[in-house]
């Protein structure tokens, strides 16, 4: 009661008030969003970091602080280095192939031809379909006992006896990367298509007038103008592929052993197969830092685009 009495008593303070509430007004609008961000993004991050510093029993009972024990156990894990190496191959491979194929697809969809609308829609299908479903369908197609891949390839004479495609780590990883490319193509193609559509016709005309060949026009004129779209597509893909869990989980569960794990599935297995929640949280922190770095790169890329 008292503060309000004093404020109403003083004229200047009373005049200052509406200005202060006005300054607070945006908070009212931002509040729900901030609360959501705090609850859904920040709180889990804090919780994750705290968990990584705790000792947690096999059944999940917290046993007190562990300091850096979880991190040193993680660093000593014999599979950590191979898993990180594989993650790099996984991300770089999928993103490179996806972007290369998408450049071609975007060019195709940019051209005018009968049925273009239909093809554009068809391309969305792998994007619209549930990832787990896509991955499971691929797993069945590659199955040793019943898979259609073995049937088709033996009938064509490419292989003479059925192969267990997902049993050999190297081949399994290649197949999973292919599925990764398959589901990434639609988004990437559409981003690049949008990029292509921003290239003004005048530029094409000018190149034609100068007598540039089609290749020359593409590499010297169109491609440089595509750079911003390309950058955005690449960075978003890198983040998504890095975080990708369902493809690997549905197709090989990271096995045999840890031979097809990336850091994301490895983190999951540390918690729920090895029953080591603390170590898994430490892996999560490492993953989180890597994602943060990628996000920062993305933000820089976007700003670069604005300036450019």
């Amino acid at each position: 009661m008292r503060p309000s009495a004093t404020t109403t008593g003083r004229v200047p303070a009373g005049r200052a008030r509406p200005r202060r509430t006005a300054r607070l007004e945006p908070l009212l609008w931002l509040g729900p969003a901030l609360l959501l961000i705090g609850g859904i993004v920040l709180w889990p991050v804090v919780e994750m970091v705290l968990t990584s510093l705790r000792e947690i029993s096999r059944t999940g009972v917290p046993r007190g602080w562990a300091g850096a024990d979880n991190f040193s156990a993680l660093l000593d894990h014999p599979e950590l280095v191979p898993v990180i190496g594989r993650t790099i191959v996984w991300v770089a491979g999928i993103v490179a192939v996806t972007v290369a194929l998408s450049l071609g697809l975007a060019q195709l969809l940019h051209a005018r031809f009968p049925g273009r609308r239909l093809v554009r829609w068809a391309l969305i299908v792998p994007w619209a379909a549930s990832l787990v479903m896509t991955a499971i369908v691929w797993r069945w197609m590659l199955s040793y006992f019943y898979g259609i891949t073995n049937r088709v390839l033996t009938d064509l004479g490419v292989i003479d006896s059925p192969r267990d495609w997902l049993g050999d780590p190297t081949i399994a990883l290649l197949w999973m990367m292919w599925v990764g490319v398959f589901v990434s193509l639609p988004f990437t193609t559409y981003v690049l298509l949008a990029g292509l559509q921003t290239v003004p016709d005048e530029v094409h005309e000018a190149a034609r007038v100068d007598g540039a060949s089609r290749w020359r026009t593409y590499w010297s004129v169109v491609f440089p103008l595509l750079k911003p779209a390309l950058l955005v597509a690449t960075v978003i893909n890198v983040i998504n592929v890095f975080n990708s869990f369902p493809i690997i989980w549905a197709m090989t569960r990271g096995g045999p052993g840890n031979a097809t794990d990336t850091t994301t599935t490895f983190m999951y297995k540390l918690a729920f197969v090895d029953q080591s929640v603390g170590q898994s949280a430490a892996m999560a922190v490492v993953n989180f830092l890597m994602v943060v770095v990628m996000v920062l790169l993305y933000l820089r890329a976007v700003r670069w685009k604005e300036i450019g």
Binding site: I56, S57, T59, G60, A271, F272, V277
Partner: peptide, 30 residues
Amino acid sequence: DQHVTTLVQNRQQPDVLNLNKFAGFAADGL
């Protein structure tokens, strides 16, 4: 396993559980 571990970690363990192991829970005094 994952479901139960998460519940225990959040101190929301069930009253009755049907599983193929018990000793870990017993060792933790649950």
